[in-house]
Design a binder for these strands. Structure first.
Lengths: 149, 149
DNA sequence: CCAAATTAGACAGTTTCTCTGACTACCCGT
DNA sequence: ACGGGTAGTCAGAGAAACTGTCTAATTTGG
């Protein structure tokens, strides 16, 4: 079955899932048990901390769901909640020590996988892929730009 | 925040989700209420019908989960189960009339979106993207090749 | 400058999704 | 025809998502 019979959505999803699977696998192996749902929220936390509502929007879940997931992450020590100095209603979700430990681990797997992909595609095609995806982001990403992982 | 600070995984995910969202939106608008979980299974059904176990593997869920989702799809009239003539243990999940109706609708949205993307990227870069993703599939897709959206 | 609308977040209850474990029915090789 | 493996279901539990409602704080408009 030739690739051009597959729609671009699926074509995008296949490598995405492959990468995600390997990241979770590695993290679990290192003793960091984090679920995909939790990760989707965790990934969006900015360097200075993010509000729950922000996280909910970007992860495309309701505030309730985001709150529930942050509760779990907090209980497991991955994040903490601090009062937002600029708004007494709000609290900032920040990455805590245990959460910070996961970042270099995840980054290492991602780098490995990107190296494998570049080896398979060749430097030219890999660069083309990255360039095209970057440009596609302009019309498909409603949000600024989340951090690592 | 420049694109090359984002890992390829996220770069792949952003347009994927954008496309997925629009397909569900359109389908819901046309009265076809199908959940993402159900869609992940439905999408994998081959032209002649697929076994539950096959669907479960490809959708990366357990047989029990796949069975649960097929139950829902069957109840809503999107699929039917028929005995597998080659193996009395097995049954084939096939796309039923109501399920077949969704296919051209989904295909139309996908075509629209692909046209928008091509317009934004230009024909050359769009072709490069498709080519690179096709090649990436060789090392990231453990399964043959599912049908249309 | 105060009332109204909005926003941040939490609580309660429900539905949907997914898993593990145990089971039946059937297939196939020896 | 026995024994091991495969296809699928049943039962129960936990995770993840939703809607609706509520309080407190902030912003806005008259």
């Amino acid at each position: 079955m030739p690739d051009d019979e597959l729609n671009l959505g699926l074509l995008l999803f296949i490598p995405y899932r492959a990468m995600e699977n390997r990241v979770f696998e590695r993290l679990a192996g290192a003793g960091y048990d984090i679920t995909p749902a939790q990760a989707r929220v965790f990934q969006r936390i900015s360097a200075t901390g993010s509000r729950l509502t922000e996280l909910a929007e970007q992860a495309q879940v309701t505030k309730q769901t985001a709150g529930f997931l942050v509760d779990q992450l907090e209980k497991a020590g991955y994040v903490r909640r601090v009062p937002d100095p600029t708004d007494a209603r709000a609290r900032l979700v920040q990455i805590a020590d245990r959460g910070a430990e996961t970042i270099p681990i995840a980054a290492a797997v991602v780098a490995e996988i990107e190296a494998e992909w570049t080896a398979h595609l060749g430097a030219t095609q890999a660069a083309q892929l990255r360039r095209a995806l970057g440009k596609l982001r302009e019309i498909t990403d409603p949000y600024a730009g989340p951090a690592s992982t």
